[in-house]
């Protein structure tokens, strides 16, 4: 029998993978992708509870999370492109200037 706890554990695993990606990778694009993984972990939670409580609100919130993810990807990648144009790098360690 699969309970909500199983889904929560899966979600914890996926979220932690995202955290590992954010904390250990240097390529900022991969860091953004790790953030997407974390958002998906959150969505799994919301949908699992929507199923568990037989309530549709969880799904509605998951839609909002997807909207946020889309906005984040668009703006984040725009910033990355602008930065790459100026400094020819996507290494997060070299993104340590407040201005140039």
């Amino acid at each position: 029998m699969i309970t909500a706890t199983h889904y929560l554990l899966l979600s914890v695993g996926l979220f932690s993978l995202g955290v590992i990606g954010v904390l250990t990778r240097r390529n900022i694009i991969i860091i953004l992708m790790s953030i997407e993984l974390m958002l998906n972990a959150v969505n799994i939670n919301l949908v699992a509870f929507s199923h568990e409580l037989q309530n549709v609100v969880g799904q509605a919130f998951a839609v909002f999370v997807i909207v946020i993810a889309a906005a984040e990807a668009a703006v984040g990648l725009g910033i990355i492109l602008a930065f790459y144009r100026n400094k020819e790098t996507v290494n997060i360690d070299e993104m340590n200037l407040l201005r140039w």
């Binding site: 909207v67 668009a74 990648l77 725009g78």
Partner: peptide, 14 residues
């Protein structure tokens, strides 16, 4: 509205 703002922002940035 957030999506709209993000879209405009992305176009401006890129």
């Amino acid at each position: 509205i957030l999506l709209l703002v993000a879209m405009i922002g992305a176009i401006l940035l890129a």
